[in-house]
Nucleic acid binder design. Sequence first.
DNA 1: ATAAAACACGACCAAGTGGTCAGGTTTTTG
DNA 2: CAAAAACCTGACCACTTGGTCGTGTTTTAT
Lengths: 246, 246
Amino acid sequence: MTQTTAAPNQITETTESASAQQNTANAGGKAKGKRRGAKPVVAKQLGGAIRQRNEERILRAAAEVFASAGYKGTSVQAIADKVELPKANILYYFKSKAGLYTAVLNDILEMWNQGFDERAIEREPADVIREYILAKMRYSRTRPQESKIFATEIIHGAPVIRDAIDLPMVGWTKQKASVIQAWVAQGKMRAIEPLYLLFMIWGTTQFYADFDSEITMIKGRALSDEEFSKAEDFVVETVLRGLALI
Amino acid sequence: MTQTTAAPNQITETTESASAQQNTANAGGKAKGKRRGAKPVVAKQLGGAIRQRNEERILRAAAEVFASAGYKGTSVQAIADKVELPKANILYYFKSKAGLYTAVLNDILEMWNQGFDERAIEREPADVIREYILAKMRYSRTRPQESKIFATEIIHGAPVIRDAIDLPMVGWTKQKASVIQAWVAQGKMRAIEPLYLLFMIWGTTQFYADFDSEITMIKGRALSDEEFSKAEDFVVETVLRGLALI
DNA sequence: ATAAAACACGACCAAGTGGTCAGGTTTTTG
DNA sequence: CAAAAACCTGACCACTTGGTCGTGTTTTAT
C-alpha cells in the first residue's frame, strides 16, 4: 500500500494542433513563471490564493468532463459552464485545453504508482496481493473518473502521457514482476508469468470503474457498497485460489 | 462458442448534433430505400456491386480511425483519406458520420452475443468456461479495434449503442448468470456471484485488446503468438482454479 | 494611498468540422 | 442504344471550437 517508487513524472505538453503552444500549464498548484506582453517582471512563487482555489475548481470540473466526454469531446466552454466561470477565465489559468488536460493527467499519475510494499518480497504473497487488489478496487470505486480518463488515453495509444509514463511504468511493472518471480522461485506460489497476473488484476479492477455504465445497465442500478464489497472478496479469493495461495 | 440468443439488435441513429438526420445508414450490406429529390422511384434491393464493395472498404477504414481516435476525434476527412475517396463520396454511402459510426457498431454487436453453448447447463462448467474465456481472448487478439471502439463507447456511457444493447445485453448476461447459478446449486463449483465472475472474464480479456499499447510499452514490443497463448493458459487456469474447478 | 500585479471577461477571429448540392460520369436496365 | 438509376466529386456553407486581445476591476505589496 505504501509507495515503492517515488515517481517524479511530469507530463510536458506536446503541441497537438496547429496553434501556437508557448508554455506548460500550472498543474498541481506550483505555478510557473510566465511572460506575456510586459506583465510580470519577477517570477512569482506560488500564485495568489485566488489562483490556487480556482485552479483546483477548474481541475475538478475538467476531470469530470474529460472523463465523460473524452478529450476531443470536451469543449473548454463545457468546463467553463461547470465551474461557472467565463471561458476566457479558465484559459487564463491554463493557457490551453491541452495544458488543462495534461494537468489533469498529472494529477492522476501521482496516484498511479501505488505498488507493492517495500518489504513485499519478505511478506506472504497472499497478503501482498490481497492488499494490492483491494487498493486497486478501491481506487476504481472512489476515482472512477480518473480511471476512465486514464483508460481512454491508453486505448488511444497514450498520445499525451506516453513519454511521461513510459519509463516509470516499465519500472514499476518490472519491480512488481520481480517480486512475484521471487515468490515463485521460493515455491511460495504456483509457477506463473507475473505479467499475466498483473494484467488480470488491472483488467478486472479497472472494469469496475470504466464499465460502470454497463454494470448499471445490467443490474438496473449501480452496485451498492455491500455488493461492491462482495465483488472485492470475490476477486481476492478467486485470484488467491487461482494462484494456489489458499 | 455457438450462439445462444439470436440478437436482432439494430442500432438506430439518434440525432446527435443540430443537423438534420433523415434516415439510417446502410450497415452490413443491406441497403435501404432512400428518397432524396426525385432519384430512385422504386426501392432497390441490395445496392449495386460497387456499393457493396465501397461500403465494406469504408467500414473497415472507419473502424480503424474510430478505434484509434474515438468518435469525436475522427473526422470524415480522415476516413476519406484512408480509403482514398473524396469525403463527399463517403457521405454518399453513409449519410452522416453518426450513421457510419452506428454502422460500425452494428457490425461489432453482431459478434458480441457470443455466449455459452445452448446446452451449457448440462456440460461441465470447466469446459464451458474455458471455451468462453478462450473465445473472448481470441476476439481481443483478432479484433482489437472493435474491442476498443466498444470499450470507449461504454466508458463514455454508451450514448450511441445504449438503446440497442440495453435489452439484449441484460438478456445475455442473465442467461449466462443463471447457468452459472445452476452449477453452483448443483455443487459443481464453489458458491460465487455469477456476475462478478463474468466481470472478471470480461475485464481481463478486454485488457489485452484495449491496453495493448500499455503492454507494448511494458514489454518493449507486442506480445508474440506464443506469449499470448501462454496468457490464455494463465487466465483459463487461474480462473478455473479460482472457482475450485481444477 | 497608490502603483503594480493579478484577476475577470465580452468580443472577436481563424481554422476545422459535418453536411449539402448541383452537375457531371459511369453502370445498369429494358 | 437510350433512358434511368447509380455513382462521383469540387465547391460551398453554417456552425463550433480553441484561443487571443483589450480593457476594466480587484487584490496585494510598499
